[in-house]
Deep mutational scan, measured.
Amino acid sequence: SLTLTVRGEEAVRRWYKWAQAHNLEVEVETHGDEYVLHIK
């Protein structure tokens, strides 16, 4: 499992696509303009 902090929706989309390509689940938490992604 992997936890990432990114800024901006574009980065979130990029990681989301990456995770889907690897059959992984993604949980997204929003903290202001930062997003915490939990990839499992």
Rank of each mutant, 00 (worst) to 15 (best):
H31D: 10
E29M: 09
T5F: 06
L2W: 15
H22T: 03
E9S: 08
V6L: 06
H22G: 02
E25A: 10
E27P: 00
G32W: 03
L4Q: 03
T30G: 09
K17L: 14
V26T: 03
A21V: 09
V12F: 15
Q20K: 11
L2N: 04
A11F: 05
G8R: 03
E10Q: 08
E27G: 05
R13T: 11
Q20R: 09
T5P: 03
L37V: 09
V26H: 01
E29C: 04
T30H: 14
G8V: 03
K40N: 08
D33R: 05
V26S: 01
W15K: 01
E25S: 12
R13K: 14
R7P: 03
Y16S: 09
G32L: 05
E10F: 06
H31G: 04
E27F: 13
R14G: 10
D33M: 07
E27M: 12
Y16D: 04
V28P: 01
H38W: 06
K17E: 15
K17M: 13
E34S: 11
E34T: 14
K17A: 15
Y35Q: 03
E29L: 09
D33T: 07
L4R: 03
L4M: 09
Y35M: 05
T30S: 13
S1M: 13
R7E: 06
A19I: 07
T5L: 12
E25G: 06
E29W: 10
H38L: 07
E25Q: 13
Y16F: 15
N23S: 09
I39P: 00
H31R: 14
T30M: 13
T3D: 05
T3Q: 09
Q20Y: 10
A11Y: 05
E34A: 10
S1D: 14
Y35V: 06
E25R: 11
V12G: 03
N23V: 03
A11P: 03
R14Y: 15
E27D: 10
K40H: 15
A11H: 06
H38N: 06
E34K: 10
A19H: 01
Q20F: 08
A19M: 03
T30L: 13
V12Q: 03
R14K: 14
T30E: 14
E25W: 12
L24F: 14
E9K: 11
H31K: 13
I39E: 00
G8N: 10
H31N: 12
R7S: 10
G32S: 05
E27R: 12
R7F: 12
H22L: 09
W15P: 00
T3W: 07
L24S: 03
E34W: 15
T30N: 13
I39F: 13
L4K: 04
Q20H: 11
H22Y: 08
K40Y: 15
E9M: 13
H38Q: 06
